[in-house]
Design a protein around this nucleic acid. Structure first.
Length: 807
RNA sequence: GCCGGCGUGGCGAAAUGGCAGACGCGACAGACUCAAAAUCUGUUUCACGCAAGUGAGUGUCGGUUCGACCCCGACCGCCGGCACCA
């Protein structure tokens, strides 16, 4: 059969499907001693069409999954849909299509496209997060976490648009206005639900040690969690009240000349009520958009009428409201030490405050030796902290602060998991009973666009009975952040139809943790922190074992076009579907893994790369077509000609390397190079080689098996042509034969003073001394030894080289 | 500013302390063809040379080593993340 990718590929896909070739076993089907491998790619959002990023991600995962299967592992390789979220709701508002219909249509479209790529997913395990069978478990987790005290309610600011009467996501707000209608957006505090993720902050930080993850991802998470060790210190106010600050530099306490509080700090808010100047300043800061606040590093402050008392000196310290103090970090109040903090310094200069030096060190912002600090003079910063804590008694204690915030999960949206609580006029906020799950999204809603959240328009949803007292109550209309959906989905794949639990412990123990997780770097912090958090919750609920969900993580690079991210707005999208239609899935897969190392960007400058992949596949096909299949056994080594032996040595050396690339190194671009080298070596075997039939049969079989993970459709076709029944994808991965890993004779490089001066051919069995002697007799080397004294001859292990040192 | 990563041909890249540039793209030359496409063969780091060859070469400078793209130190440049976090 000639190389006809499209025709062949769909036929082969159909055969795989009919044979359930990608099916992953249930835990009960696994036998003792079975090796399992859980290959996971990040859950896609069903936006409508797949893009090259998906293609790259799924191809890489599929190469690993197929390789592991051939190695004899039991492989879990599932896919599903992250199918709640804003785009579906926007489409509903814009086109009047119900989000469910829009979502279903997109999933169907994208699934078809992915299937054309020949990715070996076990589609029986497919999940979609918008289905009640899935999101009921989000609700179930919420209730379990509520019981454990991992859920709480608190006020948090949202982007509120008064004209629309709705809440907007950050990306919908541009320049303080709704992106579509231009109506003004303000910050408004709403009572919302939170997961207490900060309880796990320390464990999330420590857990990195056991993870085989890219260093930059771990660094981003460390930064995000932002652990900071210091002290909490209470100052008395002149009026008798107390204000607490957090500082990492308690040692600088004697250098405090002012105190700065966030404009949102309760004391400032209260003081502003009777201080119009302060009120005006706070309003001015509040009116600044988030971007403006971040962009400007200008320190603004306003002196309040409040004063604090220095705990050592009793001096009065002015209290300012300042724009550079954040309410949601630490205590929202800082002690100003202008001599030893860059920001405080700028502030003090601007407002004419004294800047007394209390630390002697090279860099004023770094710790050192205390001066002008009374009894603490001469101490190191470290000693001073302990001494001051002791001296301050109950006013100060060592404390740790995190940047990580508790996870606000409320969304004032329709297309998400309804939060399973009820507002009862008598009982307050009450969790729904577990047996009433799922709380389904209602159908009778209006997507007017303007106005309230669609859930508020559904009487059948709103009116309910209080789970506690049974009297009429109102259902919660907030839905969950879609990150909840993706924080445990990989466990649901293991038991996707379980109606009793999110998944059975037996399945979790059989497959978890995920062995390899591949996805985009854009999920380095949010998704990958939430998922790690949820895994720990699942562990603590007794559902899963182990501390971490993803053993190894690889973040694949983006696919660009002419240096830019492909996007609709730029009009530079290369549609995978069209490429597959023209070149076939195998060529696209091969190009995707060959073009660059996995974590680097690929720039799709043109179609030359994929042309190259196609040429290679054609050559391979032709080589197999021209070969006459034979069952003749491979003759003994000593009967073969030099060329035949050269081919077999190259073949087995390459096999060894390819196995290593796939098994340990996860280096896929060199896998393809190796395949090309093998094919070139095959082409070099003389047409009249005496044992050509048997040698080629063996070599082509190994080649086809090695090709199978990357270009699985063609491999099936070639496998058949070579005279085999059954699927190539189910054949055993070949093992490199040690007899062929080295040739009879090997080339030894001769170096003189580190420069390559000659090469000699020695028997593979030659000892180190024999190699040394042969090297010293090498004519090209001798030329460079003339008139010099040989100081030393090094024959390193491996014997591929002899290094001669002369003077 | 802080954190992480990366600097190798015309381009994508390879080399797990041991022959730098595998493999591919592009380019050039040739074969086939009336011609083109496709395909095949060869050349392709730079300098000098007809050639054999010689010398230089992995951002820069230094170090360790018989031997460094690889390890160590300093610097330069680029990319990514975070960014008033007290």
């Amino acid at each position: 059969m000639p190389f006809e990718p499209l025709h062949q590929e769909s036929l082969i896909q159909q055969r795989w499907m009919e044979a359930q070739a990608f099916r992953a076993p249930r835990a009960s089907e696994l036998k003792p001693g079975d090796r399992t491998f859980y290959m996971l790619v990040m859950l896609p959002y069903p936006s409508g069409r797949i893009h090259m990023g998906h293609v790259r991600n799924y191809t890489l995962g599929d190469v690993v999954a197929r390789f592991r299967r051939m190695r004899g592992d039991k492989v879990m390789n599932p896919l599903g849909w992250d199918s709640f979220g804003l785009p579906a709701e926007n489409a509903a508002i814009k086109n009047g299509i119900h989000p469910a219909l829009w979502t279903r249509a997109n999933i169907q479209e994208m699934k078809g496209q992915i299937q054309k790529m020949g990715i070996s997913y076990d589609w029986d395990r497919e999940i979609a997060t918008f289905l009640p069978e899935y999101y009921r478990w989000n609700q179930w987790f919420f209730l379990k976490m509520w019981e454990r005290g991992d859920v709480f309610r608190a006020l948090r600011n949202v982007n509120w648009c008064e004209a629309l009467g709705t809440v907007l996501a950050n990306e919908q707000v541009v320049d303080g206005k709704d992106e579509r209608t231009g109506h003004p957006v303000v910050q408004k505090a709403l009572e919302q639900y939170f997961f207490a993720i900060t309880k796990y902050a320390d464990e999330l930080l420590a857990g990195h040690d056991q993870l085989d993850w890219p260093e930059n991802v771990k660094a981003m998470q460390r930064h995000w969690i932002g652990k900071s060790e210091g002290a909490r210190l209470t100052f008395d106010l002149a009026g008798g009240e107390k204000v607490q600050v957090f500082t990492t530099r308690l040692d600088t306490l004697c250098g405090v000349t002012f105190m700065a509080l966030s404009t949102e700090h309760p004391f400032i808010v209260k003081a502003a009520e009777s201080d119009p100047g302060l009120k005006a300043f706070c309003d001015q800061v509040a009116a600044m958009s988030r971007e403006d606040r971040l962009m400007s590093d200008i320190k603004l402050g306003h002196r309040s009428r409040l004063e604090a008392i220095h705990p050592f000196t009793g001096e009065r310290i002015p209290i300012f409201a300042a724009n550079y103090v954040l309410m949601d970090y630490g205590t929202g109040a800082v002690m100003g030490v202008p001599a030893h903090d860059e920001r405080d310094h700028a502030f003090a200069e601007k407002y004419g405050l004294p800047i007394p030096k209390v630390i002697e060190s090279e860099n004023p912002w770094e710790p050192g030796i205390l001066v002008n600090s009374g009894e603490f003079d001469g101490m190191t910063s470290e000693e001073a902290v302990d001494a001051m804590v002791a001296r301050l008694g109950g006013r100060a204690e060592k404390a740790i602060t995190f940047k990580l915030k508790d996870w606000g999960l409320s969304r004032q949206r329709y297309w998400g998991t309804p939060i399973p609580t009820v507002h009862c006029p008598h009982c307050g906020v009450v969790p729904e009973k577990a047996e009433n799950l799922p709380i389904r999204l209602p159908e009778d809603v209006a997507f007017a666009g303007a106005g309230a959240s669609p859930l508020l328009t559904s009487p059948t949803f709103l009116d309910c009975a209080c789970p506690a007292c049974g009297r009429p109550a109102r259902r919660e209309t907030d839905t969950m952040d879609t990150f909840v959906d993706s924080s445990w989905y990989w466990m649901r794949y293991l038991d996707p139809k379980n109606a009793e639990l999110p998944f059975a412990k037996a399945e979790a123990d059989a497959w978890s943790p995920v062995d390899l997780y591949i996805g985009g770097i854009e999920h380095a912090t949010m998704h990958l922190i939430y998922a790690r958090y949820f895994h720990k919750i699942m562990r603590d609920l007794g559902l899963a074992s182990g501390d971490e969900p993803f053993r190894k993580l690889i973040c694949q690079g983006m696919v660009l076009k002419d240096g830019f991210k492909m996007s609709k707005s730029k009009g530079n999208i290369v549609d995978p579907d069209e490429v597959i239609a023209k070149y076939g899935a195998d060529a696209l897969r091969l190009f995707m893994i060959f073009a660059a190392p996995i974590e680097k960007e690929i720039d799709w400058t043109g179609f030359e790369g994929i042309d190259g992949a196609t040429r290679f596949l054609r050559r391979a096909t032709r080589m197999v077509e021209e070969h006459v299949p034979t069952r003749d056994p491979l003759p003994a080594k000593d009967q073969l000609t030099a060329e035949e032996k050269t081919l077999l040595v190259k073949l087995h050396q390459t096999l060894h390397k390819v196995t290593d690339d796939l098994d340990h190194r996860y280096q896929f671009n060199t896998l393809v190079s190796s395949l090309m080298e093998t094919s070139n070596a095959l082409a070099d075997l003389p047409a009249d080689a005496p044992h050509r039939g048997a040698v080629m049969q063996h070599a082509l079989e190994v080649f086809t098996l090695m090709l199978s993970p990357a270009a699985p459709h063609l491999a099936e076709q070639l496998w058949q042509t070579l005279g085999h029944e059954g699927f190539c994808m189910h054949a055993a991965w070949p093992v490199a034969d040690p007899a062929w890993l080295s040739a009879d004779e090997v080339t030894v490089v001769v170096q003189v003073n580190g420069k390559v001066r000659g090469r000699i051919l020695v028997p593979a069995s030659a000892t180190g001394d024999e190699r040394r002697a042969a090297a010293l007799a090498c004519p090209e080397a001798l030329h460079h030894l003339e008139g010099k004294e040989v100081v030393k001859v090094v024959v390193p292990p491996g014997g591929k080289l002899v290094s001669i040192v002369v003077k």
